[in-house]
Amino acid sequence: MTAIISIKGLEKTYADGFEALKGVDLDIHEGEILALLGPNGAGKTTLISTVCGLVTPSAGQISVGGHDIASEFRAARSLIGLVPQEITIEPFEKVINTVRFSRGLFGKRRDDAHIEKVLRSLSLWEKRNNRNQELSGGMKRRVLIAKALSHEPRVLFLDEPTAGVDVTLRREMWELVRQLRADGVIIILTTHYIEEAEEMADRIGVIDHGRLLLVEEKQKLLHQLGRKELLLELAEPLDEVPGSLAEYDLELSDDRLHLTYEFDAHAERTGMTRLMGAISEAGLSLKDLSTRQSSLEDVFLKLVQDGRATAEEGAE
């Protein structure tokens, strides 16, 4: 696959000494939706802002469509539309004028047909002659998207598109993103909602403390997430796992009252029936049992924790 955006060794240290990005490498491909997932302050917005020209990188290279963002900034930026996280919009201007203005800034001739198409697709056409300040929060956010789409970008950056947005609106936003992708727009969105990444993305990048901890196809990630655990609560404490149960790789808890069995939920044979037979043969009596599935959230938290542990070790 060809990379539309290529980021190599990107570092950013702000004037106050804060290291927001510590060597990020990332390729973004044609036709994909990439979700950058990370807690607040992870460096997501700095990463996006650097690609879009709002922040000067301290080190590293970025190219968009093969154009370096510093030496060929015009060609690079022409390909990009940016929807910022905060609702920042000129309050007193009419909707249609702000959207036209954005198109003009990108050096494109006025094209009323295109503006109409964009406004209609975002259900803003009826509101085109309203002042921005008269719109609801959700509509203002859509105006920001309309502005970003006004110059027909190939890549759209959505910085936390659904932060502080209610459930209905979030669904609408997801629908819109899918529709944009169908129109051939490459989408990079940042989020700290795991559900959103799971719902929207083709690939997921996990970022924390300025490092990209993982970039993986969502399907692969979900497959890794297919692991399930069976938790067995014993009636009597157990000193050690009986030898006859060795093949099941059971884990005995510290209180010696719980056994954990891990299995692949997607597999044809989970081995659960045989395990139950073996347990009864071994003479163990059970008080309770439950299963739990690891979620993207667990993987995410584990990655973030591991990442922090590694960073601390490195620092020591």
């Binding site: 879009c52 020209g53 930026r77 990009i80 905060e86 920042t88 919009i89």
Partner: peptide
């Protein structure tokens, strides 16, 4: 100052300008 104050300056900085 106004675009700086309300934040719309992002648009000027991210445009091919």
């Amino acid at each position: 100052y106004f675009p700086k104050f309300i934040g719309t300056i992002y648009e000027l900085l991210s445009a091919p300008l």
